[in-house]
Amino acid sequence: MMGRPILSRVDSEEVLVRARGLVKAYSTEPVVKGIDFDVRRGECVGFLGPNGAGKTTTINMICCFVSVGGGELEVFGQRVNGDARDIKRRLGVVSQENNLDPDLTVLKNLLVYGRYFGLPREHRLRRAEELLEFVQLEEKRDSHIRTLSGGMRRRLTLARALISNPELLILDEPSTGLDPQARHVVWQKLRALKRAGVTMLLTTHYMEEAAQLCDRVLIMDEGRIIARGTPQGLIEEHIGAEVVELYSTDPSHSDAMALLQGAADHVERAGDEVFGFFRRSESARALLPVLAEHHVVHRRATLEDVFLRLTGRELRE
């Protein structure tokens, strides 16, 4: 699996997923409000958005698990409607919730799942052993699911999604709820798959995850795509290069505030924090000696800044 040459991903023209004016409402409540996007073979596309943005609904429509409410959705060149057996045959899905089969052992989870795809037994066995090695669960092959940690379960879910050699891997928040170690292991595995040329579509609200893995990011909010581009491109377009954070607990805060406001390209307040965004890192650096006595944090702009800038800072529950 890893031995395959790296595919040229960005210049591939083959469109695996094509959505135009895609809409979905649950009873009367609209969740996805007309979105357009493409996923091409070989690329990794990330849906970023706060809770309730419509990310999971969107990918569930691709998985044929939520019916298309309106607009167009084509997967592998086929319109999605009802039990799209031929589409599902070519997809690998890692759901957000754990839905491993608790009645079966680790190995049997893979074998039984492979059988749903009609794969022959020898093929399933060989592939299952390969995948257990890939996700580092060989020693757990005969264990029951309830004895696995959260990270192990997620890795097994990933292995399960790969049993049929899917052309498109769909991951709904693949590292949510994992501790940092487990999360990094999942990322490692996903990077390895990306190098092997696997097309991936993932949702996440970890900005770091999107920045590390995705060639392109679509930021969703309230059922719409509000920004799209490469992680670096989005940062440059919406934030700039660097950020200086200032805390208002500082007694001479107002002087510093004035200085920051004068120098930064854009200033934003949130609670006891003030953020100064700089397009050019030289301007940020020039300000630092002046602010030396104040409590400031100077850092590079991240996707999280873009995200918060675009989706606002109110809590989403």
């Binding site: 998985c63 754990n98 799942y113 749903y116």
Partner: peptide, 16 residues
């Protein structure tokens, strides 16, 4: 409880 149906219908198997 187990979401087994959900996992199965994401494979080529239909609800029916």
């Amino acid at each position: 409880e187990q979401r087994t149906y959900e996992a199965i219908v994401m494979t080529p198997i239909s609800v029916g």
